[in-house]
Design a protein around this nucleic acid. Sequence first.
DNA 1: AATTGTGAATTGATTCACAGCT
DNA 2: AGCTGTGAATCAATTCACAATT
Lengths: 212, 212
Amino acid sequence: MKRTTRTRARIPRKTVYRLSIYFRCLNRLQNNGLQTVSSEALARAAGVKPTQLRKDLAHFGQFGTRGLGYDVAQLSKMISDVLGNQTLQPVVLVGAGNLGTALVSYGGFAREGFEIVAAFDVDPTRPRGRCPVPIHPMERLADFVRDRSVKMAILCVPAAVAQEVANQLFAAGLTGVLNFAPIVIHAPEDVIVNNVNLAIELENLSYFIQDE
Amino acid sequence: MKRTTRTRARIPRKTVYRLSIYFRCLNRLQNNGLQTVSSEALARAAGVKPTQLRKDLAHFGQFGTRGLGYDVAQLSKMISDVLGNQTLQPVVLVGAGNLGTALVSYGGFAREGFEIVAAFDVDPTRPRGRCPVPIHPMERLADFVRDRSVKMAILCVPAAVAQEVANQLFAAGLTGVLNFAPIVIHAPEDVIVNNVNLAIELENLSYFIQDE
DNA sequence: AATTGTGAATTGATTCACAGCT
DNA sequence: AGCTGTGAATCAATTCACAATT
């Protein structure tokens, strides 16, 4: 079935995450002039097992040709449709300290369909590196989010105020947070929080390399 | 060495990850003067279910007192021992662009037991914000890692060269990589790679918030 | 001959339910 | 009475194995 009317079935988060990886691999293959690719080859590029790739895709329909493989362009298109990353999503950044300012300057987001439309900070004038978007005072945050219907924020404020700032965001109708503050954010049911904790990532690494 | 004879049982990565979270919560509780805490309360702080917390801890032994809860200081100590984060781990940063430079400046690592001892870049002299550690040319990377027995690297180079740089690191004996390059790094068996892909995190968020 | 798509089997993680301490 | 520790049950994700298709 072509997945037209489908009430989107609940897709495991890990699958969605891997979809993003497949997408990037496919784009690379496409740039290299590849027309078709087998689950074997694509899986190797993505660092997963071929069956996992096939199971992941099975959530959305049938896209391959038996005996042949997948059409690179077509599969790439379908993933892009599923992820909805053809529409540019506006994002606000909250907390323009070291890390926050760097993330705005970092080209990685814009290149992939996200635009950081504004930054907010308790002290917009404190000295910092060149910041390519306007930095507003925190007082403007709630209205900005509401008026522009911003749905996602990157949160880079200190741990001590993170929950409070997050609450303001939720109250203003925002539903997705990429949280860099090293603290667990408690959020309403309908809000998604993805955490990126750099210290924990290192700590984790450090634990596992001790095994050898 | 610590950890006596017990061949360390294989602990699920997710458990280790949560241990890091519990640790931070415990420290906060300790600062607030708490002596003991129940699995119920600590779990709430950490955003997990009480049984999960207890199961996680069960991997390492018994630490609680029935009817009472856990001794905050003691539990914190045991987690710190398990994670091995009482010893300062030297880390190198490779790729001092926007993101790389920011990560060095970001206080978050030092505060948690990791010291970025040096940075490396193809062009150490290109203009960038103030960087608190010396930036060496790439040519010095392999020798530095070998000579100082550095075990972990933060990789912030462009995708196109990430695999190649990683190979140099592996050849020099490094066994842990925190990879920010938006590409899958293929590594030898005994090496651990943890990926942080900021664009994918946003993409993932954006997928799930569309559901409401 | 090659390769997908998928039920069945397996492995792993989470949660339940309650016995056992303090 | 309160709360931990854990075997059993459940739920979820991965992998196997092979029938189906080009």
